[in-house]
Every structure is written in C-alpha cells, then in structure tokens.
C-alpha cells in the first residue's frame, strides 16, 4: 500500500495546497519497503489530485488543506489524514504504530481526531 506525505524541510508541509514535494512510501506487512521523493509542483487542484491517483497513493498524510483539495482528493478514493504536523520520521512511525491521532501530531485549533488507528501496511 502506498502512503504519501507532503514534505517541507524534513517535516510535514504546513499547507497541502502549496506543498512542493511528496514522499511516497510503499508499506507491506507493516514494513517500509520503498521510499521515494516526487516533486509536487503541479498548481491546478485537479492535477494535484490526479497526480496522487497516478502514483497509486491510497493514504495521504498532510498539513492544513482547503476544502476544495480535500473534496477533489477524496473523489479519487484516497484516504486523507490532514492537519498533521511534525517530523516526517516521527509521523511515519506514529502512522505505522497507529498513534497518529495523538495531539502532538495535530495542528492547533483542530478538533481532536476520532480515536482511530491509522495504520497501514496490510497491503
């Protein structure tokens, strides 16, 4: 299963709408088997959503995002975990352990995430 994170200086990019880099991670049986960076320079919202779908991304972890982007990306059947903050390694680790819903990984001013275990790696 492919998980994409928007990256800025080794941390989650603050705003998905203007993020310029993605790290795409391939997870199998709870282990990272592949990790590569993909430029995310496309400007148009549709093109951004389509690029994620073309990359085969199933889950997107990102910072703040506007409603327009959320709707478009969800329309491609991609699960979104937004308003996430922190270092990429910590966020990824928390995702694999199912602890991403902790407040330390949430941007301020956002309702706490439902107690869900965002865990990938089954694919």
């Amino acid at each position: 299963m492919k998980v994409a994170l928007t990256v800025w200086e080794n941390r989650i990019s603050p705003v998905l709408d203007s993020a310029s880099m993605l790290v795409v991670i391939d997870i199998r049986k709870g282990m990272i088997v592949n990790k590569h960076y993909v430029p995310f320079y496309v400007e148009l919202p549709h093109a951004r959503a389509a690029l994620l779908a073309d990359l085969g991304v199933r889950v997107l972890i990102c910072g703040a995002m506007s409603q327009l982007y959320e709707n478009l990306i969800q329309a491609y059947g991609i699960q979104i975990i937004s308003f996430v903050t922190g270092d990429i390694e910590n966020v990824l680790d928390a995702y694999l352990k199912g602890t991403l819903s902790r407040r330390t990984f949430q941007m301020p001013g956002i309702q706490p995430m439902r107690r869900r275990r965002f865990r990938g790696g089954r694919g």
Binding site: S13, V15, D17, S18, S20, P108
Partner: peptide, 15 residues
C-alpha cells in the same frame, strides 16, 4: 508555544 507555520498556515510559509 507552537511553530508559526503550524498556526498561520499560509501558502507563503514553505517558499
């Protein structure tokens, strides 16, 4: 106490 980009969340923050 939070980083400014986590709070302000502007399209300028990154670039």
């Amino acid at each position: 106490g939070r980083h400014c980009w986590e709070v302000f969340r502007s399209n300028m923050c990154e670039r």
